[in-house]
Design a protein around this nucleic acid. Structure first.
Lengths: 240, 240
DNA sequence: CAACATTATTGGTCTATGCCAATCTTGACA
DNA sequence: TGTCAAGATTGGCATAGACCAATAATGTTG
């Protein structure tokens, strides 16, 4: 008589629960049985095992390396996101942040970037592309656009490390407010290459628009974070 | 000589791109060819077609209904998240929000809830569980815990609709700041049942702790949003 | 002993196929 | 005309097996 009974859990989901029990309490990095071994142990096909394992990987509970094996994943990193930068956030938690510069160039803005920064299409913008690492592990891919051409930007950035520090100390630009947009996406080949994750892994895509006190946009950034390794925190205080 | 060539895109990924082209410009709701038809058209197996389609579904670009077909998904809803509530956020954008009450009960706090709200384990808390809908579609599952027992809470909530409105108008509680934690997860059977999504769909799980001006916790909420239908926006202003 | 080639192991992709479950269509029947 | 039953269609789950790609282990050779 019940209108909607709970859906009977499919076999791959039961197996998922089974594996969760298997890894409970194990140290990160511990290898679990191979897919073929699990298939035999639970009297199922490797396809079904892979579906279960794949979801656990997507959830950040397992990791896997071709030719090596499947292992218990390390816990998520919590990212406190206020007006601070990636590097400041990380250091606050006692983690060692790092950046790998991929590109730093001055070019003409396309329609989208111009709209975000309040420029006319074709006006000069500085494009900064970086990989962000924590404890040596690449966790985010970040492309920032800044209006205009910034003199001695590269050397300043190399010295300070933090983009926001450079803006404040070198150019006297104070960020007054930021607007973050967070959505989910799945990893494609580019993300796989840049972040060393697997196809289809969940991502958190964050777009940030930062303005100065006068409300003039000073930065527009698209950041792609590993969804299996990150957790965002944002604090908002009331009007006063 | 290149150190790391771009990985050769697997067939299911090429197919994904192919289907993306197929649906570009189509109206939401438009049915695309069946899995079996696509498999034949692109000379591949249905398994491969399903892998491609599944990722597009997870990304919110397609939807599917067993026995009916696969169709172009509607665009994402943007959720502006400040100090406001779900219903206020939605109305601001001209969308019709709604709530379906699942449970409203007073019970003893467990260890976790007590810790979040700054209570001793076992102290009374009010638990409010709701499904949040926009334009009639269930988009989020929300469980809120409030300290203590609130008199006439149910009727007040039914009248006002918004939890924050009730807190302010009926109990005189002003939210002074909130802390949101955003992370990704994949849908399990419970999420499937409550939100009408498919197993493994990406979710945005948000934990919110709201405090009053004195810093006393007044609400702790766990919200599960459909990752394929939502986009979060948070605005943060500088200290002054 | 060190460097290299070979082999085995493990995850990554793909095929072909079967049956189940939900939905829609069609047609028989009252 | 309306209702219900049967069949066709479509996505959901699972199997068994094959081959590829990356890694690790082994053995050979200089």
């Amino acid at each position: 008589m019940s209108t909607d009974a709970a859906p009977a859990a499919p076999k791959y989901y039961l197996l998922k629960t089974e594996v969760l029990g298997l890894i409970a309490g194990l140290q990160p990095g511990t290898l679990i049985p191979t897919e073929r071994a699990l298939a035999e142990k639970y009297a199922t096909s490797r396809t079904t095992v892979r579906q279960a394992i794949s979801e656990l990987v997507a959830e950040g509970k397992l990791g896997r390396i071709q030719g090596h094996g499947t292992f218990v994943a390390p816990p998520k990193v919590t990212h406190v996101r206020q007006l601070t930068s990636f590097s400041d956030d990380a250091r606050t938690q006692g983690l060692r942040p790092d950046s790998r510069l991929i590109a730093l160039e001055v070019l003409k803005s396309d329609a989208n970037v111009a709209a975000q920064l309040g420029l006319d299409q074709g006006e000069q913008v500085t494009r900064l592309e970086r990989i962000r690492l924590i404890e040596g592990e690449p966790l985010a891919h970040e492309v920032a656009w800044l209006p205009g051409k910034l003199p001695r930007f590269k050397s300043s950035l190399a010295k300070a490390g933090s983009l926001y520090a450079v803006l404040a100390d070198v150019y006297g630009v104070q960020i007054a407010d930021v607007e973050d947009t967070v959505e989910t996406a799945l990893a494609g080949p580019a993300d796989v290459r840049l972040l060393g994750i697997e196809m289809g892994a969940p991502l958190l895509v964050v777009h940030r628009l930062a303005r100065d006190a006068a409300g003039v946009p000073v930065e527009w950034t698209r950041s792609t974070f590993r969804g299996d390794r990150f957790r965002f925190v944002s604090r908002v205080k009331s009007g006063a």
